[in-house]
Design a protein around this nucleic acid. Structure first.
Lengths: 154, 154
DNA sequence: ACCAAAAATGCAACATAGTTGCAATTATTT
DNA sequence: AAATAATTGCAACTATGTTGCATTTTTGGT
């Protein structure tokens, strides 16, 4: 039987490799800080906000607050990640083919952001009577309430 | 023919009266600052963010930054206003029967937030497969791109 | 209309998010 | 392996938002 730590170090290794490939494709320098940020986002099951990212990073990599902002901003520009702002807080998630744009659910109790089933852009676009000639570039749908855990806990 | 200033002072008078009635109904003290904030929001054609509200207020009423936050928070709790957070900035609009919850359009160029045609809560709710037992309390839909003005200006 | 009690405002101080310029460090290219 | 280019760290700054406490304004009873 494989050991826990072994499986994990193996996964970490794969992730590091993927991170390098991603940055290669994007044509940006492969720095330790960028790899670390990318790995944290690829490990995450839900979109993460800056403070979660900082916490996860500080234990492993020495990284400045400003650097995180700059890396996230660069990743966003290059289409590597997407940001979701729910209740005034920015969350980040990987933007891959396998992970298309989708609505999010923000628990008002625990604050966790979960991903909902995707709605295609055209489906969503169809909903809104935009006879006024707006050019739609982004549709953000955020739903809030209580997640199943918090709902049952109360 | 009626003079411009006359019509306006008349409208202001009606607004002041409406503001007083609103606060009476909500069972909260009728203060100058609250009347001023309420009037600004009732005059506005689009949802306003804090800095717009501050700017509009400072010319007329002496009011502290903190007071505006407290008033908006109270109004929100009492259901007098609604807040919309688009791209990390909070905007406020009157929450009346005639003005139901609706999606918003945020121009990425000029930053202005416009109101789109409403979608009923049940229409919107129906869209999302929430088989997981989330309890939905709020659905926020924000669309961004270029407004007609900015689109044509470029 | 006045006075006491209750409520709201102003102010100072603080916390967090996010940005910018510049010097020091790290990647990349040859 | 060295020179150049890019990135990071740091200090300082802006904006948003919050809290405690003293001062002022509203409210409600007389």
């Amino acid at each position: 039987m494989l050991h826990f730590w072994y499986v994990h170090s193996m996964l970490d290794h794969i992730r590091d490799k993927n991170a390098l490939i991603t940055m290669q494709k994007a044509g940006i320098s492969k720095t330790q800080q960028r790899i670390a940020v990318l790995n944290i986002l690829s490990k995450a099951a839900t979109p993460l906000n800056i403070s979660s990212i900082r916490q996860s990073l500080q234990s492993k990599t020495r990284i400045n607050r400003v650097t995180i902002y700059r890396i996230l901003s660069l990743f966003k520009m290059r289409g590597i990640i997407r940001d979701i702002t729910s209740s005034g807080i920015s969350y980040y998630e990987l933007a891959t083919r396998e992970n298309p744009v989708h609505p999010h659910f923000n628990c008002l109790n625990c604050g966790k952001l979960s991903c909902l089933e995707p709605l295609t852009f055209s489906q969503a676009k169809h909903l809104f009577n935009t006879d006024e000639n707006f050019s739609i570039e982004h549709i953000e749908i955020n739903i809030s309430g209580l997640c199943s855990y918090c709902r049952n806990a109360t």
